[in-house]
Simulated scan of single mutants.
Amino acid sequence: MKLFKYFIIILIVIPVAGQELQPTKEKNLWNNFTYDVGNILGGVGHAYSRPFHWQGNDWANFGYLTGGTLLLFTVDDELNDWKNGFRKDIPDFVIDYGHEYGSPENNYMLTGGVYLAGLFTKNEKLRRTGVLLISSATAGGFLQQVSKRIIGRARPKSGASSSTFDPLHLDRVYDYDSFPSGHAMLAFSNAYAIAKQFKSPWVKAGLYTVGMIPGMVRVVDDFHWVSDVAFSTVLSIFIVESIDKYLDSKYDEKYNDNQSKLSWNLSFGPNTMGVALRF
């Protein structure tokens, strides 16, 4: 039933995404709200349509993401055995934060709070950030819910190996809904979007680190494999960047104008794999 509701949302998104929404001349509270809702839906539709407009570098990045995920897939079982040795050393408050922060309910409390603060204080920069947060979470959330049902990968806590699948279910099959990780996707989407507000690389790095905790915790507690979380984290960057570029044409406040975009590259060598991030 929940999947059907999400599908209805997409049917609404598609026609709205194709329209050019123009701001009203009178910027009162209601007009700002309806304009922002249109941009949230338009941002979701824009993110889903981007693969049809990808060019060389975009396909190369997607290839790196796919290749890196497949490489991690080959060692997921070994990584899962390795992480069991330090589960007891992680403080309970970190574990609790990791499970709770990435949940959809708490995610929308945060993103909605940011947006409403911008709306009622008439701060366009904060409004835009809220729109970016909500639309990124919605796009990523729907995508991962559908993917879980199609792929049907076993969770580590099921006792099955990382290569066990029970795909193609309309209803969610618990313990066979590991890929991708919703917690990792939502948490890092928030961290990456909020980090756009700051120029300091140290602040950005701190936010990225906090945003990666839920994914790490889900691996440690046997809810996900490492490849689930790695894929979801990088995919969330794609989604946020896509929607943020769409919002550049919708708002006067372009806080990312003079900031370098995050770039990443995979490097390979004998028995090694590395990820280089530049921001």
Rank of each mutant, 00 (worst) to 15 (best):
A195Y: 12
K204A: 10
P156K: 02
G182K: 11
L170P: 01
R153K: 02
I150R: 01
S189T: 03
F165L: 09
I213H: 06
I150D: 04
A230W: 15
D228T: 07
H224V: 14
D166N: 15
V210G: 01
I213S: 10
S181F: 05
R172W: 09
K157F: 14
S161P: 02
W225I: 02
P167T: 00
G206S: 11
F179W: 06
S162I: 02
S178M: 15
P201F: 06
S189R: 00
A195R: 06
K204M: 11
D166G: 09
G152R: 03
Q144P: 05
S189D: 05
G206W: 06
V203P: 07
V173A: 14
P167K: 01
S227Y: 00
Q197M: 15
V210Q: 05
R149W: 12
I213M: 15
S200W: 02
P214M: 06
L143F: 11
G159D: 04
S181P: 02
G152D: 08
I150E: 03
I151R: 08
S163N: 15
G159R: 04
G215A: 12
F188P: 04
V146M: 08
V203C: 08
A195M: 04
D228R: 02
P180R: 04
R218Y: 05
H183L: 08
D177R: 04
A184Y: 00
A184L: 01
A154P: 06
V146H: 07
V203N: 04
S147Q: 11
A187P: 02
Y208P: 09
A230N: 12
P180W: 00
A160P: 05
S158K: 11
D222T: 12
R149D: 10
T209P: 08
D175F: 07
I194R: 01
L170S: 10
F188V: 03
Y192M: 03
A205K: 14
V226W: 10
S158W: 09
M216Y: 15
N190L: 12
F188H: 02
Y176L: 06
R218W: 03
F231D: 00
T233H: 10
D175R: 13
S227V: 09
S227R: 02
G152P: 08
F198I: 00
D222I: 08
F223R: 15
S162W: 02
H224K: 10
Y192C: 01
M185P: 01
F223W: 14
T164A: 12
S161W: 08
P180K: 00
D166T: 12
Q144T: 15
G206C: 13
G206I: 12
Q145P: 04
S162V: 07
V226N: 08
L170Q: 07
D177E: 06
W225V: 03
L143Q: 13
T233F: 13
V226F: 10
A184I: 04
V203S: 08
A230R: 09
I213P: 05
P167F: 00
I151G: 08
P156C: 01
L170F: 13
K148V: 07
G152L: 10
T233G: 09
A154H: 14
V229R: 00
D222R: 13
A154C: 08
A193D: 05
I150P: 06
H224Q: 08
Q144H: 13
G211E: 06
S200V: 14
S232H: 04
V203H: 03
Y208F: 13
K199R: 12
V220N: 07
S189E: 07
Q145C: 10
I213Q: 03
A184W: 01
F198Q: 01
V173Y: 06
V219F: 12
V210D: 01
S158E: 04
P180I: 02
T209W: 05
Y208A: 09
